[in-house]
Design a protein around this nucleic acid. Structure first.
Length: 585
DNA sequence: GCCGTTTTCGGCCCGACTGTTTTCAGTCG
């Protein structure tokens, strides 16, 4: 590929997706055909989910219509976006509909129709003018609005601003545990489960969906309404109730009959894409699925399934699909049945190959980490403290590192040691692409994982080349947190992951799936791409304390979302297999 | 605008809740 072409790739998948999402919003505001709007949203979603650079596809002349949800029109528009950076149709729509109306649509209870009505009747274009109009009572006078709507808009405006916040998985777990514990004291509840993106193990959670079975919904809802952390009850009907808890976070409660448990659990677990696909399959077989059960189209009075999820999937000729896979990415592929049962589980993990000690920025000693790992059933760990460039963490130079390794040798030689410790290092990849520890020293390590901590803002080619340098070094076994993202905090480095993966494949190097809920790096999408190429991954906690060893479960969740099986993961090997692997590489 | 074992037209998941309507539209998930 010529240099000029590389320079032209300025638009990311996320930017293309955002353009189509804006098209969809503006088309919706213009009152366009709902299916056309959905087509743009689906296209946006498909491009955001694609792990390879779509811009590169366009420049390589590859056929975009091979992506599900992209037809000839969206393919053409994508090409225009890539080549010109803009889209004439989007510009025209922005002239017709003020783009700031999209902000108004983020207010709960205000959709396209209401936003457009506010604009047409009162010239309201943004949140500020809307607030003024509400405060002066103008909005309540509009046909179809009224006092309650006006008050709700005022109240929900601040929520709209906070609504972009999503909870990390560990925070969501805390909420879930607290709510579950509280709800368990309600005698009217038989079954209870959190559904939605939480059950699917998504990297962040936008709200919580609590599903319960009971023959007395009112008693359940009364109990729920007394949940100590509730700030506001948003709505309450016969079977459904929505509340806002601390930090504006929304929790939905749904009460169903025991006979609908499976159907409701399936329905509310989602994702939307998975459910649309599933209903399509049902329809093709003359069946209809809703949250109450599965029905024959010719007789909708009596459900033929619905008690549990298994019977619903089996009725459609499918294996039960674990919630983590329900994103309509790989779970409906013809061979899914073969590997779904073999999906990785926490119990498959035999070791942890990334953790820190008191020698750098960890809170516990080698001995303490080893004992805690053994207590969690692990056979081995690798101690991978920081190298000297990471001065903030008091990174190790060669002298201190060799001293730590002799300490580990001594630890392993003790017959009473709780688990085996590999002599490792998280070696910094310096800004100039060199490694932070000499090759002579690295050659004496059992396990070297390389990662970037500085110069994260470097241009794509430079960052990518640094990681490639590390992969090319024969002493390096793995790349840790390959994209450097911190969820809700920091964007990933501008790195060409396709090039990284191709090099990892060629040099037989490991890519880490860092299990820390802030990182989850590799992402599920990148993990999926990596295993498809036959790259081995390692799922590690990057623990800085004993308790951090428990973060492994979040890495497992993401791996399951990517369809990872135990054989694809280095640290599912037994100690003897692991030693043999390291001896060869 | 997308898509195809009902294939180039005619479908596209569908039900609950709220506020406003007096039988339903808009919004949400």
């Amino acid at each position: 590929m010529q240099k000029e072409l590389v320079d032209q790739i300025v638009i990311t998948n996320a930017e293309i997706a955002a353009a189509f999402e804006e098209m969809a919003d503006l088309l919706e505001l213009s009152g366009e055909n709902a299916f056309r709007i959905r087509a743009y949203r689906n296209g946006s979603h498909a491009i955001a989910e694609e792990s390879e650079s779509i811009a590169q596809w366009v420049l390589d002349g590859k056929d975009l219509t091979s992506i599900d949800g992209i037809g000839s029109t969206l393919a053409e528009k994508t090409a225009v976006l890539v080549k010109t950076g803009g889209l004439p149709q989007l510009e025209a729509l922005r002239e017709k509909v003020p783009p700031s109306l999209r902000d108004i649509m983020t207010i709960p209870g205000v959709g396209a129709k209401k936003a457009m009505k506010l604009y047409a009747e009162l010239s309201i274009k943004d949140l500020a003018t809307l607030r003024t109009a509400c405060e002066s009572g103008l909005v309540a006078n509009l046909k179809g609005f009224g006092e309650k709507t006006q008050a709700a808009i005022l109240q929900n405006m601040e929520i709209a601003e906070k609504a972009t916040q999503r909870l990390l998985m560990d925070r969501a777990d805390v909420l879930v545990t607290r709510i579950k514990t509280y709800m368990q004291s309600c005698g009217a509840i038989q079954k209870m489960e959190f559904a939605g993106s939480y059950r699917r193990g998504k990297e962040t959670v936008g709200d919580l969906d609590l599903l319960v079975t009971s023959s007395n919904p009112n008693e359940v809802m009364d109990h729920f309404s007394k949940l100590p952390m509730i700030m506001e009850i948003i709505q309450r009907g016969d079977t459904k109730m929505s509340v806002r808890v601390t930090d504006s976070f929304q929790v939905d409660l749904r009460v169903v009959e025991e006979s609908s448990w499976g159907a409701a659990l399936q329905y509310f677990t989602g994702s939307k894409e998975h459910n649309v696909h599933l209903r399509g399959l049902a329809k093709a077989q003359g069946l209809k699925i809703n949250e109450y059960g599965v029905y024959k189209v010719e007789d909708e009075t009596q459900p033929i399934a619905g008690m549990n999820e298994e019977e619903i999937y089996h009725l459609l000729g499918l294996p039960w699909v674990p919630p983590e896979l329900r994103e309509d990415r790989i779970e409906f592929l013809p061979n899914a049945q073969e590997w779904i049962e073999d999906l990785i589980e926490l119990a498959d993990i035999r070791g942890d190959l990334h953790m820190h000690t008191t020698a750098t920025d960890g809170e516990n000693t080698i001995q303490e980490m080893a004992a805690a790992a053994a207590a969690r059933g692990l056979e081995y760990i690798a101690i991978t403290d920081h190298s000297k460039r990471v001065s903030m963490a008091r990174g190790l130079d060669e002298t201190r590192l060799l001293k730590q390794w002799s300490e580990i040798d001594q630890f392993n030689s003790d017959a009473n040691s709780p688990c085996w410790v590999f002599k490792g290092i998280e070696c910094d990849i310096l800004e100039n692409g060199d490694l932070d520890i000499s090759d002579e020293c690295l050659a004496r390590a059992d396990w070297v994982t390389a990662s970037i901590h500085y110069g994260q803002k470097q241009p794509r080619e430079q960052i990518t080349q640094r990681i490639l340098n590390a992969i090319h070094n024969p002493n390096v076994h793995a790349i840790s947190h390959p994209t450097g993202r911190l969820l809700s905090r920091r964007e990933p480095y501008d790195v060409d992951m396709k090039a990284v993966m191709e090099a990892a494949k060629e040099y037989n190097k490991i890519l880490e799936l860092n299990a820390n809920p802030y990182r989850l790096d590799l992402s599920d999408i990148h993990t999926m791409a990596a295993i498809k190429m036959g790259i081995q991954i390692a799922i590690n906690t990057d623990a800085h304390s004993i308790s951090n060893l428990d973060l492994m479960k979040y890495g497992i969740l993401q791996a399951r979302r990517a369809g990872v099986r135990p054989a694809m993961v280095l640290n599912t090997r037994s100690l003897s297999e692991m030693k043999a692997w390291l001896a060869k590489s």
